[in-house]
């Protein structure tokens, strides 16, 4: 029996202290220990992107980071990004453009898109597709997702103009 390890981290602006088994990955920790089930698990080996979360400000695969490695880190999940309103316009654009159907990929997709839009103010469709190439969607065929991202880009640039 492996002894649990004590970790302290910030999750969506809240202090969290916990004991975790070293083998527990961050996505399981968020879902099973903290009840933050907006982070989804698809493949659990880094291919599908459904478990995308922010770690110290950058997007990572939640299934490829061990919870013990997140000791001392700042984690943001889809719940945090939704509650803060940071991506409210993007979520609205996803609804308007039918950029989700079953919704399984959507939390990871939204977090990945938001990283791109923080880095680039006016990405091309090709750049959007490339940035999202690590996030699988089995419903939409991606076209509507790219449309929703473009619509958000236009709206944000218009609002800033």
């Amino acid at each position: 029996m492996i002894a649990p390890v004590s970790i302290t981290l910030m999750v969506n602006d809240e202090h969290v202290n916990a004991h975790v088994s070293p083998r527990t990955h961050l996505a399981d920790f968020l879902r099973d220990h903290l009840g933050l089930t907006g982070t989804h698990l698809g493949c659990e080996h880094g291919v599908c992107g459904a478990c995308t979360v922010r770690l110290d400000g950058d997007i990572v695969r939640g299934c490829l980071v061990l919870a013990v490695q997140a000791d001392g880190a700042v984690v943001e999940t889809i719940e945090g990004l939704s509650d803060s309103g940071e991506i409210a316009d993007l979520q609205e654009a996803f609804r308007n453009r039918n950029a989700l159907q079953c919704g399984y990929c959507t939390p990871g997709m939204l977090i990945a898109v938001q990283e791109l839009l923080r880095q680039q103010s006016n990405p091309s469709r090709e750049t959007i597709r490339e940035h999202l190439s690590g996030n699988y969607c089995r419903c939409t065929g991606y076209h509507a997702i790219v449309d929703a991202v473009e619509a958000t880009v236009r709206a944000r640039n218009g609002a800033n103009a």
């Binding site: 880094g46 992107g49 997007i59 695969r61 490829l64 980071v65 990945a112 690590g134 996030n135």
Partner: peptide, 9 residues
């Protein structure tokens, strides 16, 4: 090399 979320780590 891989995708942005993997290149970050």
């Amino acid at each position: 090399v891989a995708h942005p979320a993997i290149r970050n780590r």
